[in-house]
């Protein structure tokens, strides 16, 4: 199955802004993040189709992931 991954802020360095990724059946959110080389502790917010989701979430085809480091401002 394929998912869309969007990265933001410093997570784009050396990676990408947006990419399609193939994920095996049963693959989890945490596995996708680990494969990107992003440490779980550095993740500030991860949204799956716009909603917060746990690292153990089993992904399904067509989902969109937004992954941000810990940030603040405003």
């Amino acid at each position: 199955m394929r998912i869309t991954v969007k990265l933001f802020a410093t997570f784009r360095d050396g990676l990408f802004k947006e990419a399609q990724r193939d994920v095996p059946e049963g693959g989890t959110l945490g596995q996708v993040i680990a494969e990107l080389g992003i440490a779980e502790k550095d993740v500030g917010m991860v949204l799956v189709n716009g909603r917060h989701a746990p690292m153990g979430l089993v992904l399904s085809d067509g989902l969109v992931l937004d992954i941000f480091p810990l940030l603040a401002g405003g």
Partner: peptide
């Protein structure tokens, strides 16, 4: 030492919030 104040704000300014708040709807 905090990533928000040590890295995020100096690198991108406070408008780093644009994509975050947009993603959150």
């Amino acid at each position: 030492n905090h990533p928000a104040t040590g890295e995020g704000i100096p690198t991108f300014g406070t408008s780093v919030m644009v994509n975050i708040i947009n993603a959150a709807g």
